[in-house]
Design a protein around this nucleic acid. Sequence first.
DNA 1: TAAAATGATTGCAC
DNA 2: GTGCAATCATTTTA
Length: 420
Amino acid sequence: MDDQQRLMQIQSNVAAMNNSVMGQQQGYENMQPTAPTDPDRKQEIGDILQQIMTITDQSLDEAQARWVSGKHTLNCHRMKPALFSVLCEIKEKTVLSIRNTQEEEPPDPQLMRLDNMLIAEGVAGPEKGGGSSAAANATAAASGGQPDGAIEHSDYRAKLAQIRQIYHTELEKYEQACNEFTTHVVNLLREQSRTRPIAPKEIERMVGIIRKKFSAIEMQLKQSTCEAVMILRSRFLDARRKRRNFSKQATEVLNEYFYSHLSNPYPSEEAKEELARKCSITVSQISNWFGNKRIRYKKNIGTGGYGIGSSQGGMEAGMYMNLNGDNYQGGDNSVNALRHVISQSGGYTPDSVASSAGMFDPHLQQMTGYRPVVIPPPGTGGLDVEEDKHEENWAGYIPQMNQDDEYSDSNDEDSPNKTK
DNA sequence: TAAAATGATTGCAC
DNA sequence: GTGCAATCATTTTA
């Protein structure tokens, strides 16, 4: 389409719209001493458009020079408000409306993920409970109930607080910069709206564009913060490798539970919680311990190292009888009394095996004074085991006693894994 | 100091 | 989500 055709089209458009904006012009026209006739108005509009079209064909310098000279004339022209209004309307109906539909996007899922993570880690959102609880959760597992866990905890918390502070400072800077720039641009556009048609929607759109650009910076900031938290967390969690053995008392409590529930050594959640409380360790550590215990018990049964009556003696279940190894060694409590009684009784009896399988012999208890009282037996409403859903799988590992097998105190000498 | 013991992690299956 | 099995990493023991 050449310039002439474009000009004709614009002129016809303007003529068509002229009627629609007459209302807007009404107030203005009322102020005029004489209202021009229709042919006159069309001629004037044609002149203005002709000037505009001519400018597009000129070089920048020529146009500027011409514009400066004609600026005052155009600004003072009585048709200027009407023309601005028409141009603004056209802009809104074409470019702006198309862009608006394109810009109405749903919230960025990546940004949402970052936001959620920062809130979960206690960096964003309210500080109270955020950082400290996240740190507490992370340290609970790391410390394993050890006293120096508190040191690690405070260390983690301090570093997290640092990250949080940097994040908030940067976020504040970003918001301030964003607001300042937005205000500046809005003022600039308002200023320019005196000399060129700028619709309010156009200003809104510009503000949206600026916000979008700044949100990219915000995203970067959030991403960097998340990375910093992740690095801190991974370093902190690595500290879990620096483990400490549980206290003797804790191991004893766990062993007591394990061997008193040997037929089904799967503590319920409640039992785990109770054990965790007694041992001053976490529930997950209890789960780890029982997981390790079951598997190592099975292995040793399988290799025969723990086999009742095996030449090596020292089966782990038997340890409950011979009380050797697995932290049962050298105890000076009721366990030792039991050990003594067993050694006095001349070795293995079916009853003692029953006790190892979770069926404590009342006679033995009476004799020794030892009871697994720390953990109430199954079905008593105390620390109970899980339902026997594992019993089928586990059953093969419950010691099956042969009447010929004899456990002698000499087996005490061998730790279960000494078979290696 | 090597070997054993032990708590934790990971990958897989259910 | 839980448990198993293998493995890692550290601590304890002889």
